[in-house]
């Protein structure tokens, strides 16, 4: 018979809940930095300078072509060896997630830019507007709107991928649930609590994104 004993982990729930902050901090900071980084990469990809195009393409292929876990452990363990700098868990996490998510974001935004009607660029050029202003004020606002659904997916992925931080010792939701599990010799209950927390976070994000999309559609 299966015995579920949520009562025994009840005192540990606040401890797991504190992990929400950690998970959100990793996700939010890497998402913002990754967005900026991805936008720069996307601009390189659509530029007419072949060298920039090639660099951004190669960068993306490397970060999409290797496992995130490998990138994280490499940055965490190899940085001290290579540079002598002792990188903290937080720094390694943010750096890896930013670099990785930038690669994906750049593809979403590049697709968004390509989906903007070519007439927009032509109309802006015919008014004598400079390339940088056209990108900033005319193409990117439309491109970002186009890629919004993919960017939300990226944020959802990032929430889930942030669990990898537990491998190098970051005390996020999953790591805390595992600690509670090994303390109490109970696995199902703490992991279910962790799972529910992730689910709720992602549902909130999805709902917010739907509201945002609706709002953008009406303007």
């Amino acid at each position: 018979m299966i015995l579920l004993d949520f009562e025994r982990i009840w005192p540990s729930v606040p401890y797991i809940l504190e992990g929400v902050q950690v998970t959100l901090a990793y996700t939010a900071v890497s998402l913002c930095l990754g967005f900026v980084w991805g936008m720069l990469l996307a601009l390189c990809k659509v530029s007419s300078v072949n060298f920039l195009k090639w660099c951004a393409g190669f960068y993306t292929s490397v970060f999409r072509g290797t496992p995130l876990l490998l990138q994280l452990t490499l940055i965490y363990y190899a940085t001290p060896q290579l540079t002598g700098y002792t990188i903290s868990i937080w720094e390694a996490g943010i750096l890896t997630f930013t670099l990785n998510s930038g690669a994906y974001v750049s593809e979403h935004i590049r697709a968004g830019i390509n989906a903007v009607d070519k007439g927009q660029m032509e109309a802006a050029l015919s008014l004598g507007i400079s390339y940088s202003l056209i990108m900033k004020d005319i193409i990117l606002p439309q491109a970002i709107r186009n890629s919004l659904p993919s960017l939300v997916n990226e944020a959802i992925d990032l929430i889930k991928e942030s669990t990898l931080i537990s491998v190098i010792g970051g005390a996020d939701i999953l790591r805390r649930a595992n600690i509670v599990a090994s303390e109490k010799y109970l696995y199902f209950e703490p992991l279910i609590v962790a799972g529910a927390l992730y689910y709720v976070l992602i549902m909130i994000l999805t709902f917010a994104a739907q509201l945002l999309e609706k709002k953008l559609k009406t303007t």
């Binding site: 009607d117 007439g119 927009q120 032509e122 109309a123 802006a124 050029l125 015919s126 008014l127 004598g128 507007i129 400079s130 004020d137 005319i138 606002p141 439309q142 709107r145 303007t219």
Partner: peptide, 28 residues
């Protein structure tokens, strides 16, 4: 850019900027 600002263009597909109001389109 300078020459283009002296020679305006009107397109078959209008190509107004959809994320700006009509007035913003004109004064940008």
């Amino acid at each position: 850019g300078k020459i283009r600002s002296k020679v305006g263009m009107v397109f078959q597909q209008f190509n107004l900027f959809p994320h700006m109001t009509t007035l913003e389109n004109i004064i940008y």
